[in-house]
Design a protein around this nucleic acid. Structure first.
Lengths: 321, 321
DNA sequence: GTGCAAATTTGACTTTTGTCGAGAGCCGTG
DNA sequence: CACGGCTCTCGACAAAAGTCAAATTTGCAC
């Protein structure tokens, strides 16, 4: 794509307006266009990441509670969205915060792994645009036709689009009907390369799923409610990138997991920054499992969840002493 | 400085407005303050770097001319401000561009070396605020009481202030009256550490000075016009961080240079990214010397200067063939 | 060339934002 | 405790930015 003249104009308008601080009508007269056009160009500039407006997330890290959670669970960084707060929809607040944190963690040239779920898609949806060069977004797990609009490949592609980055999709289903087929598929060069490339990521973005009938795996038909219940009694504690993990944060030994095409937990752990975002309060145990399995170094949660984590940590300390 | 309640409010207002996209009156009602206060908080948020508005400098790197200059002189990156352009004051444009480029090059945790001069001070003055954590700004050369408001230490401190970074000043004059004194001073632990720390910088920001009666060195009384003229006939071609360099970009062997307290050129060359900004068209030869001495890897200049550079490169190529 | 659809641009209008002086609250001081 | 000096806050007005339907241009197939 060559630099179209329109693009040039957007750049110039954005430059004069944001860098030089001219008013829209001044920009308009400099470029010999109407002010309305300038307004439109500026909107496009914001939407395409030519200008970047980012707010510091300091407010949320400076929180004493965040520090405590970091210390108690040995995490690199924790952000806590105040839930009692002044917003209509508190769960959106976590996603907005997560999007800001995510953008703050991304560096030029990074390779980013993205998993799938309602949370991740919400983040992708509200994330502002940026113009990162040389960034690659890779999908962490296979695809699943979802009844909703957030399929794994869509999460990946949407985030790639927002960052002006390259998106790398997984050309495989998340779960297959037999273990043999899954094994063969994993051996396919295309898939194998994709799986191997996951460990090279600099940053991962995912949430953790609950093991219940409301799970996406159930809603998307990958598992029946009864199967899910069965897995739970076998020790299933959470869902990471489409895989079932136990309370220790390890892959549960079950047929389902063997039929899944997804990132190996070892590959995920090889990623330096693992950003986990948890919106729902019901995901307390799944989150504990993920932390236990060292699947998360950076965490974005709500104030209530943070409270529960600290309470849990305190109880554990007391018992130990 | 503890987090004052006002600061907290600024953060919240900025967060609701910029991250959540609420209108000012909505923010006002959420926080139970008047809309006028919100507007004021938002201005403060922008001024203190709590929110960051940055425009992509792509427009200027994508320029064909910039690419040509990069290739012709083996530079890592070149930005060219269009001088024929739509702006009242073209020389400001270079400084504004330089400030944007500078902010784009700075990374968290960086150590930044800053020299001194009208250009550098102009950049510091128009640079927008940012909230970089763990950034250190160090002064590249000794101090000089200037008749203007841009003393070396002020350049350093102003940039540090804008970045919300730590500023490290040089507690020494730029030039001493005897070589012996300069030598002793350089051996002082405080000064020695400072000088040694320069090579550890990740980024340097400086301009190059001309060898004439208009030079800062003359205006600030470090050198008499006649002395400057004398140095010129001895091969002086430019001024870098208060030192005289020859056409090859090496330190000129002269008494003045031996009396100066400033970064060694070898230390400067050890800095990965050396951002040089040249506003005045008269600094053509000095710039060539600086490039010859590999004192610049990243360059911000005006279109006219770029034209002269390319013309020069072309002539040199022709002569060679 | 001609006609049509899509994209772009514009002027007029509405909404949102910036600004300023007045007034309220706060604190150390005489 | 009254007094200035200080900062913070507010209401009202002016300025700027966003929006939309209509007009214009552009691109393209025929």
């Amino acid at each position: 794509m060559a630099i179209r003249p329109a693009e040039q104009l957007i750049h110039k308008a954005a430059w004069l307006y944001y860098a030089h601080g001219l008013r829209q009508d001044e920009v308009a007269s400099q470029l010999n266009i109407s002010r309305a056009s300038v307004a439109m160009y500026l909107r496009k500039a914001r939407e395409t990441g030519i200008v970047n407006i980012s707010t510091s997330t300091q407010l949320f890290t400076n929180d004493v509670m965040a520090r405590n959670v970091e210390d108690a669970f040995g995490l690199d960084a924790v952000w806590i969205a105040p839930e009692n707060a002044y917003l209509a929809d508190p769960s959106t607040d976590i996603a907005v915060l997560a999007a800001s944190v995510f953008l703050e963690l991304v560096k030029k040239g990074d390779r980013i792994g993205v998993a799938w779920g309602r949370t991740v898609y919400t983040i992708a949806d509200i994330m502002s645009f940026a113009d990162l060069q040389d960034v690659t977004v890779v999908q962490l797990c296979g695809n699943l036709g979802a009844p909703y609009s957030y399929r794994p490949d869509q999460c990946t592609m949407e985030i790639a689009r927002r960052l002006n980055a390259k998106g790398l999709n997984f050309y495989a289903p998340l779960v297959l009907s037999t273990e043999e087929l899954a094994k063969s598929l994993r051996a396919e060069p295309v898939i194998r390369d994709q799986l191997a490339g996951i460990a090279d990521c600099d940053l991962a973005l995912y949430s953790v799923g609950a093991v219940d009938a409301d799970s996406h795996l159930v809603k998307c038909g990958a598992l029946l409610p009864a199967e899910m219940e069965g897995l739970r009694s076998q020790g299933a504690a959470g869902v990471i990138a489409g895989q079932i993990i136990d309370a220790g944060g390890e892959v549960l030994d079950c047929s389902y997991n063997r039929r899944v095409i997804s990132a190996e937990l070892a590959s995920l752990r090889a990623i330096e920054k693992r950003l986990m975002v948890v919106q729902e309060d019901t995901k307390f145990e799944p989150l504990l499992s993920a932390i236990a399995g060292r699947l998360c170094t950076h965490l974005v949660i709500g104030a209530h969840m943070a409270g529960r984590l600290l309470q849990y940590a305190e109880a554990a300390t007391k018992k130990a002493s």
